[in-house]
Design a protein around this nucleic acid. Structure first.
Lengths: 237, 237
DNA sequence: GTGCAAATGATCGTATACAATTTAGCCGTC
DNA sequence: GACGGCTAAATTGTATACGATCATTTGCAC
């Protein structure tokens, strides 16, 4: 299972300012679930795909490993991360821990134009949900995460923003692996409720809704240990 | 101002498993303030210092830039990060936001042996404070951070732990730049108070103490904008 | 036919080499 | 004497090359 050209070549021919472009392209592919967890990302293949040397491919993969999106195994190669159930729990625990705080901070500094921006995001998200097709689905996944990231950006704390970047991206991986419901972002209306609570300055309610929202996402996961199904159980029906 | 051999060569001749060793050595040097903010870390120099090629030196510096300890400027090189007052504020805002949560999580899972471990850390910290000399001072800086990192490790959340790693390291940079009091870790007793509160299971009080502790550290900073002192003000006495 | 051992191929780890960019020094002109 | 442009040195950006490690398969013995 090697990454196909269609899975990765999105921002290909843009200026080659370095490994960053490659990193971003691969990250987008992972977040939008065009690349499945466990997919091997060999340095050579990635380099060929983007027409750069292994040096840059390696740098990009290394960067992604710091974000927890790919895992590099010594002398074996890089793979799209395959979060364990335990990791998944920790990711959502971290989100429960930081998102209320980010929300409070954001609500305290939010300006009318930014509320407007949030509302526009919700609209776009709603539009994508009603559309059909793979590309719409992928855009929807991204838009769903963008809501949380925008909140972090409004909070004005670049460090928390980067942290949320990581958490949202890794959440996408977890949902790809353990999500049950076919609908990817079941909680669209919940986003709207949160914005509404912010608008009427009811912070406690907004935080409550946020925690509920995160719990809702997590509840859709099936985090039972799957001991690499496929040895025997997969055929012993 | 290039990194001197004595500033970096700590774990030099140990096994060369890769760039990780170099990264850790430089990180320690930064956290213990043997390397001052703004110091240039050229790839060539770093490579020579550790007897490796520029490839590995570059990888190590790149990794440190992801942690915010080093800033790499395109075509200009890498420098020990020089956090702006605004960054400093964000770092501490982030700590205020996450540390109470980590503390609660840790307190909920803490085992007697881990309390023992914390107490031992405090003892060691106290011992270092009473000693004199540069090496003791540096060890003290590290020990002071280790308290917070140990708490994060007890929380059992690897993601939050990594995040705290970053925050504590960057805090050290900020204190090096903006700290006023000569004593580096004024809040040793506060650490003890927090452990005591945990021990008697008074979580609210523990969180309150933690927030107080962070505020105390931050209060010792002089975060006034210094517009690269040395243009004119430095001589216009 | 099964199991182990050596050879093969693919991939990674690191070093070196070359191109591009910046920085510093130098000289001529104003 | 100060300013501006030019050349040279130093440093980074990227590619390539070679040695090391791991996975796989081939072949042989049992």
């Amino acid at each position: 299972m090697k990454p196909t050209a269609t899975a990765l070549q999105t921002a290909d021919d843009s200026a080659d300012t370095g490994a960053q472009q490659i990193r971003d392209a691969i990250r987008d592919a992972i977040v939008e679930r065009r690349l499945s967890p466990g997919t091997k990302l060999s340095e050579g293949d990635v380099g060929n795909l983007f027409n750069v040397s292994r040096t840059l491919a390696r740098a990009a993969l290394q960067a992604l490993s710091y974000e927890g999106l790919v895992s590099v195994e010594k002398n074996r190669g890089a793979f799209v991360a395959y979060p364990s159930p335990e990791e998944a729990r920790q990711i959502f625990a971290a989100r429960r821990l930081v998102e209320p705080g980010i929300l409070r901070e954001a609500a305290a500094r939010i300006k009318p134009s930014q509320i407007q921006h949030l509302r526009q995001l919700l609209l776009e998200e709603g539009r994508l949900i009603s559309e059909r097709g793979q590309t719409a689905r992928r855009a929807e996944i991204k838009a769903s995460g963008d809501f949380h990231l925008t909140l972090a950006s409004i909070s004005g704390n670049a460090i928390m923003q980067r942290f949320m970047d990581e958490l949202v991206a890794r959440s996408s991986l977890v949902i790809a692996l353990y999500g049950q419901s076919t609908i990817s972002s079941c909680g669209h209306s919940e986003h709207g409720d949160i914005v509404a609570a912010i608008e009427r300055n009811d912070l406690d309610e907004a935080c409550r809704l946020m925690l509920h929202h995160i719990a809702h996402i997590e509840a859709d996961l099936d985090l039972r240990e799957r001991k690499s199904v496929g040895l025997r159980e997969a055929f012993e029906i």
